[in-house]
Nucleic acid binder design. Structure first.
Lengths: 158, 158
DNA sequence: CTAACTGCAAACGTTTTGCAACTTT
DNA sequence: AAAGTTGCAAAACGTTTGCAGTTAG
């Protein structure tokens, strides 16, 4: 019965990305290229949608966001899903599994956790720096930790 | 920045259910009745599948489990899903959200957490009694905690 | 007998896939 | 031209729902 210091299990290069908000499409294109992703128009739009804010968007949200407004080139659902998957694979964003019905994508790749308000379908960040999980048993043999997700489920107080 | 003692947030009546393993169908029927559920043949089969072990089964697992073997009455998928939902609602089992592709059902309703081996698709219990989460921020106003899920994701160590 | 329960099939929402057309280099 | 990317439509999941028929109390 040791304890696990979440700070110790991750490097904090990710924490920098948190503040590195993408504020223009140009900047987004550069960011993609830096991560080995060819910045096509669709990818830039998707990247901008998911990386410019600090919200937690579902694929559906991204699809809507990218396809509302006037002059934009149309982005298909397939491309949204494929691209979000690519971004996760390349470490630009993170999947958050809090609701069985949909996956959220989180532009904050630093170690942190979430409040989840199931009624509203909204995730709220919990800064990971101060959170410690104490009393975890040792990991099963031959396994290492790939990540720790803490989801605090919320309901309206009575 | 307080800390949250998981022991303090739940009563431990649930912990008794953990040891209360259902070892026969008769016993299962009684158990269902005690929880206000009419014990039909299908519900008893489903209950037995999910309550007699300490495994974490998906709906698909339960469906297979209930429909393999020789003489059993057939149980439809709809009934499996509806019945598992009913069991959750009545507090006999708990949903575990660890994989975006399927929901697991956990016969252990005591507060506890999970290792998740995504490669194998297997959940392993972490006893909740000793685990504390330290450093969580205060809850958003007007909200109370409905539950805390900790999922430690595992991968094969290098 | 009545209310509750079940099965089927169809509908659903999310995510994935096959492939032809189109960019990009 | 070769390689990579996109869109569409269709399929593939897991899950839910409507309804006619069956079963429990």
């Amino acid at each position: 019965m040791g304890h696990i210091d979440l700070q110790g299990t991750h490097d904090y290069t990710g924490a920098m990305k948190k503040s590195l908000k993408i504020k223009s499409k140009d900047r987004c294109a550069r960011f993609l290229r830096e991560h080995g992703i060819t910045p096509t128009a669709q990818r830039v739009d998707i990247g901008f949608a998911v990386l410019s804010g600090c919200e937690h968007l579902s694929a559906e949200d991204v699809f809507d966001s990218v396809n509302t407004g006037t002059g934009r080139p149309r982005v298909s659902k397939a491309t949204v899903y494929n691209t979000l998957g690519l971004f996760v694979e390349k470490g630009l964003i993170r999947e958050v599994i809090a609701d069985p019905n949909k996956t959220f994508y989180d532009p904050n790749t630093a170690p942190h956790h979430h409040f989840y308000d199931a009624d509203a379908g909204k995730l709220v960040d919990i800064d990971g720096a101060d959170v410690k999980i104490v009393g975890l048993p040792p990991l099963p043999k031959g396994k290492e930790m790939a990540g720790v997700d803490v989801v605090v489920r919320l309901r309206d107080s009575a």
